[in-house]
Every structure is written in structure tokens, then in C-alpha cells.
Design a protein around this nucleic acid. Sequence first.
DNA 1: TTCTAAGCGAGACGGTACGTCGCGTCTTTTG
DNA 2: CAAAAGACGCGACGTACCGTCTCGCTTAGAA
Lengths: 198, 198, 198, 198
Amino acid sequence: MSLTRGRPRDPATDEAILGAARQLLAERGWSELTMADVAARAGVAKTTLYRRWHGKAELVVDATAAVFDRLTLDDHGSLAADVEAVVRQLAALLAQPDTHAALLALAAESGRDPALHERFRTTVIERQFCLVRRGRENATARGEAFPVSPTDDDMIFDMVVGTMVQRILIHRRPVDDAYITRFVAVLLAGFGATAGTA
Amino acid sequence: MSLTRGRPRDPATDEAILGAARQLLAERGWSELTMADVAARAGVAKTTLYRRWHGKAELVVDATAAVFDRLTLDDHGSLAADVEAVVRQLAALLAQPDTHAALLALAAESGRDPALHERFRTTVIERQFCLVRRGRENATARGEAFPVSPTDDDMIFDMVVGTMVQRILIHRRPVDDAYITRFVAVLLAGFGATAGTA
Amino acid sequence: MSLTRGRPRDPATDEAILGAARQLLAERGWSELTMADVAARAGVAKTTLYRRWHGKAELVVDATAAVFDRLTLDDHGSLAADVEAVVRQLAALLAQPDTHAALLALAAESGRDPALHERFRTTVIERQFCLVRRGRENATARGEAFPVSPTDDDMIFDMVVGTMVQRILIHRRPVDDAYITRFVAVLLAGFGATAGTA
Amino acid sequence: MSLTRGRPRDPATDEAILGAARQLLAERGWSELTMADVAARAGVAKTTLYRRWHGKAELVVDATAAVFDRLTLDDHGSLAADVEAVVRQLAALLAQPDTHAALLALAAESGRDPALHERFRTTVIERQFCLVRRGRENATARGEAFPVSPTDDDMIFDMVVGTMVQRILIHRRPVDDAYITRFVAVLLAGFGATAGTA
DNA sequence: TTCTAAGCGAGACGGTACGTCGCGTCTTTTG
DNA sequence: CAAAAGACGCGACGTACCGTCTCGCTTAGAA
């Protein structure tokens, strides 16, 4: 006896749908993205979308999550270099049309729907939070002192992501190399100089 | 010859509409806020709303702007105290239901509509940016050294607002006194320790 | 002391408005005719229209009435010739764009509004009914026998106007000379052959 | 492979909508009939109306067509009796509130919209025109001479319908038995006396 | 092989908000 | 007072998208 009776879902369909969603997100933004259009571009019936996701928001969460997973934390030899690399990647990511369109819309939509917020939090936010943890591990492995106490992990994450979101998505001003360099310097100095204070 | 021909717009109507919008924003959030409901609560015809604003988004921008104007920068005797007071107000403001509902939705909506973004930028963002400038002036007037160079004004604004937005609106985690105190300390230390570096 | 206090109404304005109404009626038809447009074309404020007529319908009644007054009953020497001339004029009149657009719309609108129907009846219908009466008089004056008894006046009017309205306005098929000649022949024969029967 | 893809339209819905439209037409007349009200009374969403008809006018055409199909041409033994029966039915039909409200409004509305006129012509007018043809057939079958030549079919239709429309819908005067009897007599005499003239 | 449960495409459907338009009224200033 | 200008209340319009449903057809594993 099998748990999977009936015709199995085509696994390729999932990726076709998420891909279509990402494209349309980049082209038109959240509010102009239509479930019907996603279905059409994926060559799939609208029913199929709703069979796999509970609604537009959840679909977009998943479509967006994959994009954020592109963030990597390579070892650049020093904490400052590692942090700067991540910030640079984050800035580039947020400037992309699809992320641009999706992130704030999802955050906004999450406001009313706790289930959606939970999904958004676990699949997008928490998945990136580990970068802080891994940064700490890398620094320790290198024998470098990580100036931030474990209790500050939350805050350093808020400050990095928040500042970039505010700059790029809300205020919509450009982020150049000088800005990033300065930002990382201020950040590390702030935590380093107050290392034992928390 | 008069510049004001025909029946003048009732100036009280504007405030009635904005007030109704703020109420409904707090009660129901952005997507459940209806133009028809705003009109009804303001005791006004739906047409009147569209005669004064081009759509839901523009109306909410103006309704939200007034809320942000509540931020004040009183002189608490020291830079640290001043900054902490502002951050505390900002955190409280962002936690309010109406702001909560409106801010991200507006930022998201601004993505597609440049005119809306411009209105959002000038009536909400820029109006708060002056707090940084006035903080610098107050510190100088007290004979206190403001650790941030003028070119950092943008960044300090991004960091303060961004971190709070990320923490409260996106990640939706609470901001307590300890968090604020620590955040201000890190911030000032970061800029202070790197004062001549920019 | 005068009976007319204040600024007197400009009598030329009436004709300007009615003219504008007729033009727009011909160009756009009843439902696309707007009070605001009539006012604009007449170079007059909307208020002025409503000061002189109670609404769109009443204005159009008066605008239309003048057109129908163009119908004349000249003496062509014989009853058949007289009737044919009137029918020909009527057909031409109904084929004009302004009449075309107005007449059925007014009749339809009159259905719900007794006051409007009364105005329509007296200013449009009854004013044309006298043509039948005058036809009878002309025939008598020529010493010709009018085959229709006085009690048939209503019916002959209904048949003439009704047939043309049905043909031109409702069914929208062309009325050529042959049709008119045949129609008049049938009509006169019908009444003539049954002259004493009523 | 099937010709009917997707969920089929509920055929009962059509009739529910048309019925609701007819009721509201009778109760309120053309201009007070609302698409929203029709939908509500039919227990259907407004969208469904617009999915099946292009607008209020087209819906009313179809609702009205069914009413006109009630006209029957039974064999009463003689041409005069047959014609009189039809005229009597037509008079009764035009006096009904729903027909009353709809017919002129439709004719008027058709003026601007050729597509609507075409629909009106084919579904209402032409469907009744066959009564003339069938009257001719019945008379011939009885061995009776039909006094009207085939080329007169149009005109006899125009005269019958037009006269009744003018009398009942436009002039709004009552049609009693005497009027009908006299009208049929005049009509048949007119065509009969001029049978070979056309 | 046949049965059966599910996947799937297509599109109807209920619902709700949108933004627009026109009517007729009201409220100003100007002549 | 008339008139011009335009704000205003009202209410219908037709559209758009959401998410659900109901069809007929397809696809496999189970009987």
C-alpha cells in the first residue's frame, strides 16, 4: 500500500511556476503580478498554483526565498573583509528588480496574516540569519576575536539588513563602494569599541 | 479678478478624510482599507476623495505623513540622551497599528509608481531627515562634539530608521529599553571611534 | 418699481443653449449628450441650464420641439398630394441625426416621468396633430371630399407617424419615394373605402 | 478531445438572470434597472452578467425577446380574424409594464451602437416579422386571397407595429376593441383596394 | 486489465474593490 | 439678483483580481 495514490505531481512544474513568478515579479512588481499571469507563463492552470500554495503571498515567499539563498559567506581572510563581502552581496541582491518588488510587499502583507509572516520569517529571514553565526565561526576558526557578543547577533543582523533595506528599498538611494566600506567600518567599530558593554 | 473661482473646497474635509484614513488604517491595515469606507467614515462622497487624491496610495501617504510629524527632538542635555529619545519615539511610532500597516505598504507601492515614491519621499522621509540635522545643531550649541561628519548624515539616518524598521516591521521582534540603549551606544561608538575616517 | 428685480435673463442665452443641445444630440445622441457639454458649447455655466429647465429631458424636449415645427402643410391641389408632401417631410425629419437621437429617447424617458410626458405630448405631439386637422380643412376648402371621419383623426395620425417611426427609427430601414407613394395610396384607400363604417 | 473545455455554464443561470431582468424591468423601468439588482435577484454575481452579456442593453434585449415570442398566430378562420387577433395580442403586449419600459429604451439605445441594433433587430424585430409571412400562408392554405403582395410584407409589418407603438408607447392613449376593429378594417381595405397597384 | 484516486487544463463563478462618469444641487465670487 | 466656476453627494457603471468550483481528461499504482 502506498501513501501516494493517484497521479503524482510533476516535480518540474514547481520550478516552472516559481520561475514564472520571479520573472513577473521583476517585470511588473508585486501588485501587478497576477496569479493568472503566473499560471499562463508557466504553461499551467491556475488550479495547479492553488493546489501547491495557499495564495499569491505564499507563492511569492517561496519564489523570493530561493533568491536570497544566493548569499554566500566565503572566507576572505578577515572579519572586515567577510562582512563587507556579505553586505556587498546583500546590496546587489536588494537592487535586483525581483527582490526589490517582492521583499517589502511580503513584509507588508505579513502584517495582517500571521501564517504568512511565519512562512516569510522561516524561509527568508532565518535562513539569512545564520550568516551572522557562520561569520562568528569563521572568525573564531581563524583565531580572530569576533567583537560582538552572542547576544548582539540579533542586533547586528537588524542593523545590516535594516540599513540596506532602508537605503535601497525605502529611500531608494544608490549604494556605492564608499558607502559600504564606511558602513562596515562604523559597524565593526561600534561593536568592537563596546564589546564588553552589552 | 480672483484666483479662487467657483465654490472653494471645504478645508475641514481634508482633515476629516485623513483622520478617517488613519483610523481605518489602524483598525484594518492597508489592504482592508477601502476608499468607500474612508469616504463613509469621513461623511463624504467617494468622488471627493478622488478629486483630492489620485488614489488610495496617495491618500495614505498624506495620512501617514502627519503621524510621523509627531516625532520631536527635545534637548535632553547630551547627544546620547537626545538620540536615545528619538529612537525611543521612533520605535513607539513604528509599533503603532496605523504606522505599522502603512509604512511598508507605501514603500512597496512606491516601487512601481515614481510619482507616488516622490510624494512618499518628500512628505514622509525627508521631513524626518531634518531630525539628524537638528541633532547636530543642538550638540554644537551645547558645545558638545558631534562625532559624525556631515557626510555621514545620510548613513546615520539610514541606520537608525532602517534598523528599527527591520526589527519592528519586518522581523517583528520587540524593542525593549535594553535594545535601544545598546543600539544607541553601538551607533555613537561606531561613528565616534571612526570620526575622522570618512 | 419693477416686477423684474435684479439682473434680467439674457434672452439670447436660451437659443444658444437649445442650439448647442441640438448639435450635440445630432453628434452624439441622447445618452452621450451631457449637460456639462451643452453648457460648455453654449458658453454658459451648468447652473444656467438648470435655472431654465428642470433637467436634461426637459431641455431636450424643447430643443426637439423646434425641429418638428419645420413641418408645413402647403396646398398641393389634392389631398393625396398634400398627405404625400407631409409624409415626405416627416420621413426626412426623422432621418435627421438630431431627431433620430432624440425622439425615441424622449418617448422612453417619458415612460417614467408623467410631467415629462405631458411636456413632450404638448410641445411635440399635439403641435403636429393639427396637421391632420388642417389637411381636413384644406380638402374641404377645395370642395374635395375628405374620406376620413373626424373620429378617425387620431388613427390617421397614429398610422402616419407610427409607421414612419417604426420604419426609420426602430427598424432603421430606408424610406424611398416608392415606399411613400405606396403608403399614401394604401392609407387613403383604406380610409376611403371604409368611409362610412366607423 | 472535447469541444467543451472547462466548467460549463450553468444553463439555469441564463434563465434566472433573464427572469430577474424582466421582473425589475416591469417594476422599475429601464433607467432604474440596475445590473447589480438584476444580479442580486437572480442570486448571481454581477460578474456573471458581464460574462454573458456585454452590458445592460444587450441583457435587456434578450430579456425582452422572450416576451415578444409569446405572440402567436392561430387560425381563426379568416384573414381579418387572424390579423385582429395578432393586433390585439400586440396591443396587450405593448401595454405590459416590462415591454412598455424596454422597447423604446432599446430602440433609442440602438441608435448609437450598431452591434446592439443588430442584436435588437435579429432577436426582437425579425422574430416577429415571420407572423406576416405565416399569415399569408394560412390565408393561402384556406384558399383565401391574401390582398397584400409579397413586396408589401415590410409595409404591413411597419404599419401594424408602428401604429401600435405610436398609440401605446409614444402617445400613450388607450387601445380599445373599437380602435382595433377599425384599424384592421382600414388596413385590410387599404391593401385590398390597391392590391394590384404596388 | 480494470479500477480508482489524484493531477491537471480550462474556464465558470461569487465576491469585493477599484476608479470613472453623469446628474442635479450647493456655495462661492464677480458683474 | 444673474451668471460663471467648480465643489459636492449620490449612485451606477464596467473592470480586475482573488480564490473556489466544476467539468472532462490524463496518469499512474492497486486490485
